[in-house]
Write a protein that binds this DNA or RNA. Structure first.
Lengths: 122, 122
DNA sequence: TACACCTGTAAGAATAGCATGACAGGTGGG
DNA sequence: CCCACCTGTCATGCTATTCTTACAGGTGTA
């Protein structure tokens, strides 16, 4: 899924899901939804250490969920502002199945069971 | 999100995201999309150990993404069949923000910055 | 110079998650 | 009885994630 909501590849999907599967990072995204902010201030707002927040922001950015830009304030201080990216992801069985299809099979996707009556109930 | 796609609470959302943020479990869901199956057979199909698959299925079921039922085959053998639940989750900044709002704040949501001009660029 | 801000990174400890192998119990059929 | 299936659980390592503390720089103002 790029900026909008096309179909994500397996790797993209995993990166996004892993990035969001954490209460802290979820809070970070939620906080940025209320407006952009720079790292130090956001750390104070959320009550977490700046290095930790920094780490979380990196993961969120790598997943394309937030974007950050280094900005020079009027006083010449460097401040890194982050804002949420307008992502939109549909999570359904079909979407997951298509994403998995693009995933490099670590080991045998396994021979699809030949004919297969094994999943027939009764 | 119940069976369909209502709004998930913070805990639900985290459970679902954490359950899906794993390549193995993603493959499990994808495999079940092609039809229901029982644990041992599915383990062979996916090329993973049965105890491990069992663990993953438990997490997926706890998240409401798959449902399992113990069934007695015609020969009297107990087989646990799993199938995907028809889930449908929208992942957008707004949804995340609303979910986080229901999340128990581990520590101070932090005083919302008073008036806040800090996020004003320039 | 000292202070109060800011960014960026690294080393280390504590913790959670993943994965394996082995066990106990059940069934039916040769 | 023995073998081939099945479910369910546990003790054990191993790896990845999470988080803290501590650095090294940069700016502007008193």
């Amino acid at each position: 899924m790029g900026i909008a909501g096309s179909e994500p590849s397996g790797e993209e999907l995993l990166r996004v899901l892993a990035a969001l599967a954490n209460p802290q990072r979820l809070r970070v995204v939620a906080a940025l939804t209320r407006g952009q902010n720079y790292v130090s201030q956001l750390a104070r707002d959320l009550g977490m250490s700046r290095p930790l927040l920094y780490l979380h922001l990196q993961r969120l950015e790598a997943a394309g969920l937030v974007v950050g830009r280094l900005e020079l304030s009027t006083e010449g201080k460097a401040m890194k502002y982050f804002e949420v990216a307008p992502f939109h992801l549909e999570v359904t069985p079909a979407v997951l199945a298509r994403a998995v299809a693009t995933l490099a099979e670590t080991q045998a996707t396994a021979r699809e069971r030949p004919q297969d009556e094994s999943w027939e109930v009764r």
